[in-house]
């Protein structure tokens, strides 16, 4: 389309080609430019490798921390499900009422399992385990109440929902008091939340650094090609056309950095596996380090490419407009 000369035809209009061919041409053009900017990177291997290295390692660090947090969460997930509520029943309720209560609570959807420990049995156990056996002989009546041990279903085993279940159980007439040993669980959760936030924060800072590094690298590339850009503007290239190879450069940096991060994380996991195995053996626990899943690997790669593109978009938007032919 010509703005000044109505009857003058341009480019694709002049060669009568079908829409399909036009779409094909579009992709072929982009592919050609993508490969051209890959070739540019290839011609300056040292500079390109340094940039890719910085990018890859900046992504490796938060990814490794993420793997660490993920594994810790997996280990603690096993403990969480063991959350158990102890209910101490009032001493003045009859055995019949207790059986009623057991029947009722068993029907609740939150409850997985319910064990009744009668007071006599509790006393017997206490005698055995506490070592106060002789002293307890002097008691004229059993001071221990009947106890119900309630195991919540998996869905209600988390610290918050378990606490809610405890409150509900406490409201039962027969229950004197209840206890849920979740304090350490809450603490662990707190630590894990903190760790996760810390990882996010570190990741955010490093990602910002990556965007700045890529932005600066692209800026230098643009300044190096200053005279070429001026010539292109003189012969009628739009900013969009001029910036495309630089955007592809950012894309390639991101892709290469992401792949580097993959390998780095895989090597780190492999490296740490043996020492972790040695540690977990001491606890006689079966534990294998879980690396990144397929979708997580894709996320890492996608993130890396996004960061590369973001850096180049910021840089290109600022600097290509500035360069004008004189």
């Amino acid at each position: 389309m010509s703005l000044l000369f109505k009857d003058r035809q341009h480019g694709a209009e002049i060669s009568q080609i079908s829409t399909v061919q036009k779409v094909m041409m579009f992709f072929v053009d982009h592919l050609r430019q993508a490969l051209a900017s890959l070739g540019d990177l290839w011609r300056t291997p040292t500079a390109s490798l340094l940039t890719i290295g910085v990018l890859g390692l900046s992504i490796t660090l938060p990814t490794t921390l993420y793997v660490l947090v993920k594994n810790t969460e997996q280990v603690s997930a096993g403990w969480e499900q063991a959350a158990e509520i102890s209910l101490f029943l009032r001493k003045d309720v009859s055995q019949g009422d207790i059986q009623q209560l057991i029947k009722r609570v068993n029907l609740w959807p939150e409850v997985e399992k319910l064990v009744h420990v009668p007071s006599e049995q509790a006393l017997k156990e206490f005698k055995q385990l506490s070592g106060f056996g002789d002293a307890l002989q002097y008691l004229d009546k059993n001071p221990l109440p009947d106890v119900l041990l309630v195991t919540p279903t998996e869905k209600f085993a988390g610290p918050q929902s378990a606490a809610r279940l405890l409150d509900k159980l406490r409201n039962e007439r027969e229950v004197e008091t209840g206890k849920l040993d979740i304090e350490w669980l809450t603490r662990l959760h707190g630590v894990l939340t903190l760790a996760r936030e810390l990882v996010s924060l570190i990741a955010l800072l490093l990602f910002l650094a990556v965007v700045l590094i890529i932005g600066n690298t692209i800026r230098l590339n643009i300044l190096n090609k200053r005279s070429e850009i001026q010539v292109m503007k003189l012969v009628g290239a739009t900013d969009a056309f001029i910036q495309r190879p630089f955007l592809y450069t950012g894309f390639w940096f991101g892709l290469a950095g992401g792949i580097l991060a993959w390998f780095a994380v895989i090597i780190i996991c492999w490296w740490m596996e043996s020492s972790i195995a040695a540690l977990t053996q001491l606890y006689q626990k079966d534990f294998t380090l879980t690396g990144l899943s397929g979708s997580e690997l894709l996320v890492v790669l996608g993130l890396s490419v996004t960061l590369g593109l973001a850096g180049s978009i910021i840089s290109v938007a600022r600097h290509i407009r500035e360069i004008e032919p004189t």
Binding site: H10, V231, L234, V235, D239
Partner: peptide
């Protein structure tokens, strides 16, 4: 002509420079 349209104007004008402006 807006600055976005300038490239299209330049496609209608063949320009030759003393310094060639070749790549």
């Amino acid at each position: 002509i807006t600055s976005r349209q300038i490239p299209y104007i330049r496609r209608d004008i063949g320009m030759i420079f003393q310094s060639h402006q070749l790549l």
